[in-house]
Design a protein around this nucleic acid. Structure first.
Length: 687
DNA sequence: ATCAAGCTATTTTTT
DNA sequence: ATAGCTTGAT
């Protein structure tokens, strides 16, 4: 540990009591945390009594690996420190106490896709005069409520305005569907853990006494529910170390409260504070830019990054004609960099293009493909979002928890086995009337409903199929179970039927095989592999976190959003689309208070760069098929210290957006007045 | 049950 | 511009 600077040293060696580590970008935060874990263990703390919480699963894995390396080989039989995300931690807590909360131990975890299905169902047949609510809108409202611990009842009693009232009603439906399915969504994992701690003191005690040391990474992005969990787990031993950078708080829209890190010393008055301000990542001119930019935020812990690495080129700011030219020129520059001088070629993995929104990479992808430059788009459609993967996972979830209705309805006719929508409609209606999960009423339904005999025998066959596999859980290996399932339902043939295009079915089948491999790997790696454990991993995995992605990324340029770039670094960074409306995003400008967070986002982008940084903006950009002139982002002026011009740019942009928003609002009103003639018929999926 | 043509809404970030 | 849906024909 000799190679730590004095601040890092202080952060590593303050082992007892509350500690706030304010770690600026590139100041060796991860290193400090892993050293700290190692130090705790070296001073005699039992490893398994240390809990470290990270923001992503990828970060957790990396931290586990690093800590392992520092400590050398693990002694057989000793449990390692627990390093996981809040969500995984909660799953493990909740599995132990699910019954107390009225859930089965085998409760399913619903991801975004499942949530959307539920939201769609919840919104069926409800509408208001001002139009409908999209599932996504409902989910963000529901997320907000859940994060504040607001129940459906409370939501509907305080709701104002048609849309919010509608959402509150749908929230109640959504939540009761979840409950009926024995399922929790991501927010529920945190919410129910809090409920458990509040209502069952003995459970809280049991969980709080598992650990004597608690470390929380990315503390600036904890939301209220996470904050309460931290408190519940730490208030006995008080050995709480939180690490974060308020200047990098970028998840406010998801309920993260920067106030938690800003007010840490109010909660823990005896807390020590260590500031890490020596930046080892970026060249001086980049740091300079970052410092000047972030100084425009007022509510923050005072911190100034000091560059450790002197010299380096000044960041470039380039203006492009439109988004296609932007892509073309950036890709061209990247190509030149990669070809380089013969003696210093830059590998593609040293290069990243960062952007604010998910529509921006389109032009870049096109251009990269044209120029045959390998790239990875991080955060697009994840492996686990693929339909075939969701199908197989849905089977597994039904095996674990047949009340999981979203999954049950997904697989009941997949592959097509002649259980059509009218049969399903009848079954669902029956289940709703009984107020019980479809699976449990299935035998009765078959007797009582007057269904065609063919349908009855098909459903019965499906029931036998599921029961047969359920009986096998635990007695054969998970990967075996999956192979058998795929063979029994002849999934491959179904893929060929569904995707006759050349190679289509083949590539989808490969994905399925990859999933089986992932299960096999999971079994190898885990000491006590379970079906539920694998499902948890598959559901909570980060979107870009499948297989050995670094193998793929090693030879490719990275394209990703600023949000996914947090915690990463690249020698060469292009930060594109620095325009009013994109960064800062139009919505945060209009909502008034959001620009600070956008500035932090920009700061995160700038501080990813190690050696060179290029910032681009366009003169005009296509919007819905029409070109629209752009205003250069105020951040470009702020980072060069031109606060006055930045202010003017901001005002111009705001005026422009207000006008556009006004026009959009009028259009919506006109549409609402027009006779509503939509029927809103979709596949029978309840409830 | 399946598919192509036509229509439509689009305005953020994701564990 | 375009993805993602509905619709109407097989």
């Amino acid at each position: 540990m000799a190679d730590l600077n004095p601040d890092q040293h202080a952060a590593v060696n303050t082992l007892a009591g509350p500690l706030l580590v304010l770690a600026g970008a590139g100041t060796g935060k991860t290193r400090v945390i892993t050293y700290r874990i190692a130090k705790l263990i070296q001073t005699g703390i039992t490893p398994s009594r240390i809990l470290a919480v990270t923001f992503t699963n990828k970060a957790a894995r990396e931290m586990r690996d690093r800590a392992q390396r520092l400590l050398g080989r693990r002694v057989k039989g000793t449990k390692p420190p627990e390093i996981s995300t809040f969500h995984s931690l909660c799953v493990r807590i909740l599995r132990r106490h699910a019954r107390r909360l009225g859930y089965p131990e085998t409760f399913s975890i619903y991801d975004r896709g499942d949530q959307e299905t539920l939201a769609r169902n919840a919104l069926r047949d409800i509408r208001v005069s001002t139009g409908t609510l999209r599932p996504g809108d409902l989910l963000s409202l529901v997320g907000g409520w859940k994060n504040k611990g607001i129940t459906p009842d409370q939501a509907s009693s305080t709701a104002e305005g048609d849309k919010v009232e509608l959402a509150a009603a749908a929230y109640a439906r959504y939540q009761s569907q979840l409950k009926a399915a024995g399922a929790m969504d991501f927010d529920d994992l945190l919410l129910q853990t809090n409920r458990l701690f509040a209502e069952h003191a003995e459970a809280r005690f049991a969980e709080a006494t598992r650990f004597d040391h608690l470390l929380i990474d990315e503390y600036q992005d904890t939301n209220d529910l996470q904050y309460r969990i931290v408190k519940a787990l730490a208030d006995r031993h008080r050995n709480l170390c939180v690490v974060g950078d308020d200047d990098q708080s970028i998840y406010g829209w998801r309920g993260a409260e920067i106030a938690h890190i800003l007010g840490f010393q109010n909660d823990w008055p005896d807390a020590k504070v260590v500031r890490l301000e020596s930046n080892y990542r970026s060249r001086a001119p980049i740091i300079e830019l970052a410092n000047t930019l972030i100084a425009h935020n007022t509510t923050r812990h005072q911190k100034v990054l000091r560059p450790f690495r002197e010299g380096g080129a000044a960041p470039r700011i380039l203006r492009m004609e439109d988004e296609n030219m932007e892509a073309e020129q950036v890709v061209q520059q990247i190509q030149q960099l990669m070809l380089g001088e013969a003696d210093h070629r830059v590998p593609p993995s040293d290069i990243a293009i960062l952007f604010r929104t998910n529509e921006q990479p389109r032009a870049f992808e096109l251009e990269m493909r044209r120029q045959k430059i390998p790239y990875v788009l991080v955060g697009g459609l994840s492996f686990y979002d693929r339909r075939e993967i969701r199908d197989v996972l849905a089977y597994l979830r039904v095996f674990a928890n047949p009340s999981d209705e979203v999954s049950l309805l997904r697989v009941i006719n997949t592959p097509a086995r002649g259980i059509g929508s009218s049969t399903l409609e009848a079954l669902i209606e029956y289940a709703v009337k009984e107020g019980k999960p479809l699976w449990t009423v299935l035998p009765n339904a078959l007797e009582e409903l007057e269904l065609p005999t063919a349908a009855i025998s098909r459903i019965e066959a499906f029931r036998v199929l599921i029961d047969g596999f359920r009986a096998k859980i635990g007695s054969i290996k998970l990967s075996e179970l999956m192979r058998e399932l795929l063979k029994t339902v002849d999934y491959r043939t179904e893929l060929e039927r569904l995707h006759p295009g050349p190679g289509e079915a083949e590539s989808r089948w490969l994905a399925v095989e990859e999933l089986v491999n992932a299960a096999a790997l999971y079994e190898q790696r885990e000491e006590a592999p379970t079906l539920l454990g694998f499902l948890e991993e598959a559901t909570l995995a980060d979107r870009d976190d499948f297989g050995d992605d670094d193998k793929r990324e090693r030879h490719a340029v990275t394209l990703m959003t600023l949000h996914s770039a947090k915690g990463l670094e690249f020698p060469h960074v292009w930060l594109v689309g620095l325009e009013e409306g994109i960064l800062p995003h139009q919505r945060s400008v209009l909502e008034g208070r959001g620009v600070d967070e956008e500035r932090r986002l920009c700061y995160v982008g700038v501080t990813r760069a190690q050696d060179t940084l290029t910032l681009t903006f366009t003169k005009a950009r296509m919007k819905w098929g029409k070109p629209r002139p752009s205003i250069p982002s105020r951040f470009l002026m702020e980072m060069r210290g031109d606060t006055e011009r930045a202010r003017r740019a901001g005002e111009a942009a705001e005026a422009m957006f207000r006008k556009a928003a006004e026009a959009a609002k009028q259009a919506e009103e006109r549409a609402a007045e027009a006779p509503a003639k939509k029927k809103g018929r979709t596949l029978a999926k309840r409830r």
